[in-house]
Design a protein around this nucleic acid. Sequence first.
DNA 1: AGAATAGTGTCTTTCAGACAATATATG
DNA 2: CATATATTGTCTGAAAGACACTATTCT
Lengths: 283, 283
Amino acid sequence: MQISQGDRPAESSGINNELQSEQFFLENYNPSDFEHPSVTVDILVFTVTDGKLCVLLLKRREHPFKGKWAIPGGFIGMDESADDAAIRRIREEAGVENAHLEQLYTFSAVNRDPRTRVISIAFLAAVPFQKLHFHAGIDAEEASIFAINGIQGERASVNPERAMFPDDCLWTLTGLNGELVPASELAFDHDIIIQTAVRRMRGKLNYTDIAFGFLEDPDAFTLTELRVIHEAILGHHLDVPNFRRTILREYLSKGRIIERGLEKGVVGRPAMLYSLQSSSEQG
Amino acid sequence: MQISQGDRPAESSGINNELQSEQFFLENYNPSDFEHPSVTVDILVFTVTDGKLCVLLLKRREHPFKGKWAIPGGFIGMDESADDAAIRRIREEAGVENAHLEQLYTFSAVNRDPRTRVISIAFLAAVPFQKLHFHAGIDAEEASIFAINGIQGERASVNPERAMFPDDCLWTLTGLNGELVPASELAFDHDIIIQTAVRRMRGKLNYTDIAFGFLEDPDAFTLTELRVIHEAILGHHLDVPNFRRTILREYLSKGRIIERGLEKGVVGRPAMLYSLQSSSEQG
DNA sequence: AGAATAGTGTCTTTCAGACAATATATG
DNA sequence: CATATATTGTCTGAAAGACACTATTCT
């Protein structure tokens, strides 16, 4: 049986009646009839320094997990989207305004927070080390970046909260002062979240622009700088000539980066500087 | 300044005191101090029939968007994870028990629901057409599957709620009875959600097992059946010999599928039947 | 000159796309 | 045999990996 246009009530049986009943409905709808979980954003602020992929963590001053290192996060306001909350939190906690930001995964296991039901939308941010001010937190928690060691795998699993391989979450973190933190010592399920994020970055490295987000100056970078970022994310070395060829084919010949002249006053042969073109100004 | 292990309170300043203060904290934490958004799951039940990719929709009987087609969804219970809520909803709405299920994206724009603040975790399910009973809904809403026509692009954008290309969301849906529904006529932001899901499936088709989720019998399928599923998802034809070669290299030679003998009693040359091996029984 | 860094060229293997040809069933 | 479907084979060009080699600067 065909459903003709005439069967659509809003267009057939009187627009005024429809508007009135919709207005009645909206006025009498009470959202607090349901018990709601808390919803937070967790922000994985990644950076690359000294050839290593690092993540920003805060030391918890309160229970639960008091004294453990945790991913920055916070509640989503009723008047902001999850993205807006993430942007606000990066500004508050890392002093960064325009980071490359990407939604990672939403973690919702019932007992992931011992206090109450918390659903957390995890975001991944790529921040240049030079722009990262990780003592700017409004809560004055102890903040530090940690190098990530030994995460295996090129790709995030379909369901990070369930599928655990035997060697998952056996990796470690190293603080700037040399402090060694096993992933299992992180607060909440933050070991799983970080591992998921690193694998996601690896999997998307070759078909997104995320690596460029780590560049100190996207308008004047060398291919060596870009390669070091790729190597830090992947966790292994890349062949120098092959990396050049791939990037130049994928970006230079498509106008997504352009040449900006040679470096000055460096040791060794000066490198070509490149500039990332914003999507609007591409040829 | 080094952070010595002695600075960790739980390990240095008395375990009993720590446990008591944590208990005090947990007892006095009141989650209702904050106003919370509603959290729902939206389930994109995809299927393939007659060589076309289809999605299950419900006709809304209530405001808002009364009379419009919408993705099935529902609130997350306080005692279930988002995954569990999605599994429950698929059972209720489509009568399916063990679908391939994958988290898609969390949509959180402030005004995406005119009633109140709703954050929706979207899931993508792959269901064989023969197992889909789309009149089993407990709410007895009108349910139907719709073929998806004309979605462009191989990959989901980084932020589906913001980045809109000019030709986005100009695609259409076709009901079983021939009813043509423009994507823009769907309820809420469900046009964006479906478009994001289709692009995500396309992008992940070659490195996940999602296509196998559409097979009527994963223990006895032909490569033609599998190819038709790929073609439906991608929206274009695939070269038959090249598809064989790729699948056999990626799956048969790695033991992820095995040969199960020839078809019987079909027109034309009988095809080899294959069986998908569960991850545990792979050689 | 020598050290340090950037960049080029080439060989091999793998793989995707296009398409011709062959094989095995039914009626 | 004709028809319908499945399967094999082959050619080409793109791209990745390995690695030897050249170029340009500074001290």
